[in-house]
């Protein structure tokens, strides 16, 4: 019996069956039915020796070639399926994600830290002081004795004196008392800032809170001038608000500095007061046991909330201590960068 062999038809059939095999099991079935011991191509190859001698070389060579081709097609198909399998099924990428909780720092912390970092870059130490102060430090030793008209600048919340019997105490109205306390324990050169809470007996509204955070600064060394005050505070403001910011210094009055000034920045077209400053009054330097003709310096103070309001466009200062998380969440994007 002459074996009718159409290798082309066989190849075409094997390849379409291979293409239809979609998983490992189907591939194995295909391999068995084509290339297995009783597989169809194997059968053809075995039948070659029964062919007439003149057909044997052609059919034999063709079948062997086909076997090699189908084997590599199988391998290719196996790779293809493996790749498809590891890719996994297609999912709806628009479904909501599972969010890990995002914590946050309070905006006053963010702004305070940015201010502290800025001053640290300029070589400042950072220390804190007591919220409950002695009247002497908050006022008298800053050249604001009782009855002085300047005391009106700070409406004070006093500690009831029914338990202490000691000196009169109050909630510090500014961080300036730390100027005196720091001078008591350190020798020049002095370069320090003091962040901390302050309190004012003052009705609250969109721009006033009875509790606020201040940063005080004190710099004392030999022969420092108003030029160093300007250079330092301008550098601070540029780093804080960006190098293009316009600044100006206006004469202002604080009893513990002379000359006194206020630093303003031009913000969205308007001049806004950012901080009070001035050259440390020579009496304060003398009171610290230093020679005021040799040692000079400057001091400054500013409100952290006020800077935060500028930075973040907050319109009502009362938001800060209400701690509504809808407000606090607004600051998530400033984490770590402020």
């Amino acid at each position: 019996m002459a074996l009718e062999v159409n290798l082309d038809a066989l190849e075409s059939e094997a390849r379409s069956a291979l293409a239809a095999a979609n998983d490992a099991d189907a591939l194995e079935d295909w391999r068995v039915s084509w290339l297995g011991r009783r597989g169809r191509l194997t059968t053809v190859l075995r039948g070659v020796r029964d062919l007439p001698a003149e057909q044997r070389p052609t059919i034999g060579a063709g079948a062997n070639r086909l076997k090699g081709e189908l084997e590599s097609a199988l391998a290719a198909r196996q790779d293809e399926l493996a790749a498809a399998e590891s890719d996994g099924p297609t999912i709806d990428v628009t479904l909501p994600g599972r969010r890990p909780p995002l914590g946050s720092l309070h905006p006053v912390t963010l702004t305070r830290r940015k201010m502290e970092r800025t001053f640290r870059d300029l070589g400042f130490d950072v220390v804190e002081g007591p919220d409950i102060e002695l009247e002497e430090y908050n006022f008298d030793r800053l050249r604001i004795p009782a009855g002085h008209p300047a005391r009106d600048m700070w409406d004070t919340i006093w500690i009831a004196d029914d338990h202490s019997g000691g000196p009169r105490q109050l909630l510090r109205t500014h961080t300036s008392p730390m100027q005196i306390r720091y001078l008591e324990r350190r020798e020049p050169p002095i370069r320090v800032i003091v962040p901390g809470a302050c309190y004012r007996y003052e009705a609250t509204d969109a721009t006033h809170e009875w509790m606020l955070t201040q940063i005080e600064g004190l710099v004392i060394d030999q022969d420092l001038s108003f030029a160093h005050l300007k250079g330092t505070l301008e550098a601070f403001v540029r780093r804080m608000f960006g190098g293009e910011i316009e600044t100006r210094f206006r004469c202002d009055y604080f009893p513990f500095v002379e000359p006194g000034a206020e630093l303003g920045v031009r913000w969205q077209g308007d001049w806004l007061e950012v901080l009070g400053c001035g050259m440390v009054h020579p009496e304060i330097i003398e009171d610290a046991g230093l020679d005021s003709s040799r040692y000079t310096g400057f001091a400054f103070g500013m409100g952290v909330e006020r800077v935060a309001m500028l930075q973040y466009g907050v319109r009502d200062i009362r938001h800060f201590y209400r701690n509504d998380i809808r407000f606090l969440r607004e600051f998530d994007r400033f984490r770590g960068s402020a």
Binding site: G123, D125, R191, A227, K230
Partner: peptide
């Protein structure tokens, strides 16, 4: 008035 950076060592 002039404007100058702080001189001297960092305390």
């Amino acid at each position: 008035l002039p404007s100058e950076p702080l001189p001297g060592a960092v305390p």
